[in-house]
């Protein structure tokens, strides 16, 4: 009891002096990154295309803290890399990392690896995005199109054994808000990041595949591994739920594709209290 008293007095006074901090900041995505040419459909057939701006077209954004930027090895700013081993791009050795939106399994395998959290308000929003925007409707395990939000909800409740939408991460509040310039902003937190004075905060947005000719693969992402994640089996319904690859921030060049957006690498942190803003202003083009 007597030993406990001094310990109680220490509450709130103990500084561990760890080199890790929680970085809190913001990503800014140009309006152009959420603007894509999408197919116009009639009776399931592509009859043309139109340009739309839709925040649901924003894929997961990967943000990392790095030692610096390499502007010579690629056609875009890339984190500085360690030695090249066996011909592979070098590891960028991030000090920490996070995402703005992550892959989540939205009950149907047809949209596995295609749904990012923080992009959809409700079930109807998902049905609308895949059916009307991408031309690749949500279908069940028998190939039947899901057009009712109630059906979607009921199937999710059965699949996950839940009783409330609050238990699902892929619907709810949207992460992005439109700023005065018409661009989109979202906050991020990068927990337990090793702080080095002058370190660079770099990130990229994995844009979904959107073809106005063949819509079959619309909505897929290069950073999602369809064979990973939870395996779900119920009788003859065998599902791979998909998950992000585990070395995206170490080897980003392996995942970047034409259409993705990266930051220019100019965001640095000189103080642990800095709140960096990462603007993904560089578009990867052919």
């Amino acid at each position: 009891m007597r030993a406990l008293l001094p310990l109680t007095l220490l509450v709130g006074c103990f500084q561990e002096n760890l080199p890790q901090i929680d970085v809190v900041g913001k990503v800014v995505l140009p309006r152009a990154a959420a603007t894509r040419s999408v197919p116009i459909l009639e009776d399931g057939q592509v009859v043309g295309n139109e340009e739309v701006t839709d925040v649901r077209l924003v894929g997961p954004i990967f943000v990392g803290a790095y030692s610096g930027i390499d502007t010579t090895s690629f056609t875009y700013p890339h984190p500085a890399m360690g030695p090249v081993i066996a011909g592979e791009a070098g590891d960028a050795f991030p000090y920490g990392g996070t995402t703005v939106g992550r892959y989540d399994y939205a009950c149907y395998e047809s949209i596995a690896c295609k749904v990012t959290t923080g992009r959809f308000k409700d079930y109807a929003d998902i049905i609308d995005y895949f059916g009307k925007v991408l031309g690749a409707p949500v279908v069940d395990s028998h190939g039947f199109e899901i057009s009712s939000a109630d059906t979607f909800q009921q199937y999710c409740y059965d699949y996950f054994n839940i009783t409330s939408d609050q238990e699902l991460s892929f619907i709810g509040d949207e992460q992005f808000t439109e700023n005065a310039d018409g661009d989109f902003e979202a906050s991020f937190q990068m927990p337990r990041t090793t702080f080095k004075e002058g370190m660079t905060i770099w990130g990229f947005m994995d844009a979904p595949v959107v073809s106005v000719v063949d819509t079959l693969n619309n909505g897929t992402f290069s950073t999602c591994d369809a064979d990973a994640g939870r395996d779900y089996t119920e009788y003859d319904n065998v599902v791979d739920e998909g998950a992000a690859y585990d070395d995206i921030l170490n080897l980003p060049s392996g995942y970047l594709r034409v259409g993705d957006w990266v930051s220019d690498g100019s965001t640095t942190m000189t103080s642990q209290d800095d709140q960096p803003t990462v603007t993904l202003g560089v578009s990867l083009e052919e």
Binding site: G68, G82, I85, A86, F93
Partner: peptide, 16 residues
Amino acid sequence: IYTDQMGQDHEIVFNE
């Protein structure tokens, strides 16, 4: 050990 430009050490495994 690989030391990056900020002086941070990283262990590299060259096992292929």
